[in-house]
């Protein structure tokens, strides 16, 4: 799985951090990945972050 964040859409609302703090962080009002390849154990949290991003800025792609 590859996580992509569209920084043009991101407003830095930190909802991804709330959903998956192990994977996302927000610096200077923009979301960034803390780890590029989250382990399978975090996939459900990442999917929640994708769903709950208010700006639909995060997407998941099969590698």
């Amino acid at each position: 799985m590859k996580i992509e964040i569209d920084l043009k859409l991101c407003e830095g609302n930190e909802r991804c951090v709330a959903a998956a703090p192990e994977v996302f962080e927000v610096r200077d009002d923009q979301a960034h990945l803390r780890i590029e390849n989250p382990p399978d154990s975090l996939i459900e949290k990442v999917k929640l972050a994708v769903r709950m991003c208010p700006r639909q800025a995060i997407s998941l792609r099969e590698k």
Partner: peptide, 19 residues
């Protein structure tokens, strides 16, 4: 936890003042 509520809406009109 988790608490994926929609009290502030979601998408284009997501509450501007939520934070």
């Amino acid at each position: 936890n988790p608490n994926p509520h929609l009290a502030f809406g979601i998408g284009e009109h997501f509450c501007l003042g939520s934070n």
